[in-house]
Design a protein around this nucleic acid. Structure first.
Lengths: 203, 203
DNA sequence: TAGCGTTGTAAGCACGTGCTTACAACTAGG
DNA sequence: CCTAGTTGTAAGCACGTGCTTACAACGCTA
């Protein structure tokens, strides 16, 4: 994983590690970034290895050299981006953070696309379910901690379902008025209803 | 399959139109049914024309004779099943009806799969978005009539998002405990939170 | 500078896909 | 019975896919 590179000699010895013409670590990164974007935009099946390699500006054979398979690439991309956010966000903020990332178009290009990747990569049977399973379970356990009801896990699933559904309607169906709605307005509506979900009596 | 044949000619002349050995209308039906099921189970891209024809017990060339293309088949299947339900269900019952159909495994085989088809057929760009657009808009306009807020359409989108998200988590991710949860318990939680959604103040 | 492992490249393989075509088998109308 | 149109069938085409392989270009080390 760490494939770190040392200073090639004549390059500036400072922080900027002087562009190399042949840099395995750099092409790995480019592939990872391109994969994350394309998986989010077109789904796992819709994103082709040729497309990913092209967006990364890299020969497609290198994709298989560094990640073994398309699934391997997905697994590494999800593990890197998705799990990182879940780990770094306080539980009580996770839902709203994820919701906002779903609602914010990637104007500058970088938001967290991990949930979009998640929801669009479950297509083919259970082939790559393994890679996504861990991310889903992380979300579930964190969200479940927000309700003290006995069926907290079920409520967490329902919350995540809403997250994914909103993602679908926005990014793949492009449904109006949701797609262009003010994120604040959506947050207000969703978070209000979610409060009811968390605190509803057990039976 | 069973393609049993009765005697043509001497058959019962009553209402039952005596099975014919070559029956265009019947094979159209079989194709339509098989398509609805497979689109729901594997998604539009995951369902192959060969798979559909096989499940229907029909030569795949006939699929193209009767429906022109895979997209034509999808359009007709969605129009027949999905639109019919929206038209036949009272507005105030539509959400719960759809939710229950999402939560009820097709033990006997026939439930309404139109929403599953909807959520799993938006994959490739906007190719077949046309066929699905009408169904989505129908749901939206009916659900929007349940709230008298100015942003009723947005709230309808959010409600439908929840529906689709629950479908994803249940049928494609197979997430526990949601997948095996008691439909009644899920309905109670979701409908309660949805009530908050419909009646939340505008700002 | 010579050698050698690492990085990048081009071409292609095997397979699955949606769809077409040429033809046989059946049915209905005369 | 004969003929014409309808229904069913088998084979295949063109293309896109994930993945492999054989090879060239490069850069570090000795």
């Amino acid at each position: 994983m760490d494939r770190s590179v040392s200073d090639p000699g004549t390059g500036t010895p400072g922080e900027a590690p002087a562009e190399r013409r042949r840099d395995a670590a750099a092409t790995r990164r480019r592939l990872l970034d391109a994969a994350r974007d394309l998986f989010a935009e077109r789904g796992y099946e819709g994103a082709t290895v040729r497309g990913i390699a092209e967006r990364a500006g890299v020969n497609q054979a290198l994709l298989f050299r560094y990640f073994g398979s398309k699934q391997g690439l997905l697994a590494e991309a999800v593990a890197e981006d998705g799990l990182e956010r879940v780990r770094a966000t306080p539980p009580e903020e996770l839902f709203e953070t994820a919701l906002r990332s779903m609602l914010t178009r990637d104007a500058d290009g970088n938001g967290d696309r991990s949930l979009e990747v998640y929801l669009r990569s479950h297509s083919r049977g259970e082939e790559n379910a393994g890679a996504l399973r861990e991310l889903g379970e992380k979300y579930q356990s964190v969200l479940a901690s927000l309700s003290c009801a006995e069926d907290a896990a079920l409520r967490a699933d329902l919350a995540m379902a809403w997250l994914l559904g909103i993602g679908i309607l926005r990014t793949v169906v492009a449904r109006e008025p949701l797609a262009s709605a003010d994120p604040e307005a959506v947050c207000r509506l969703v978070l209000g209803s979610l409060d009811t979900l968390w605190h509803a009596p057990e039976k």
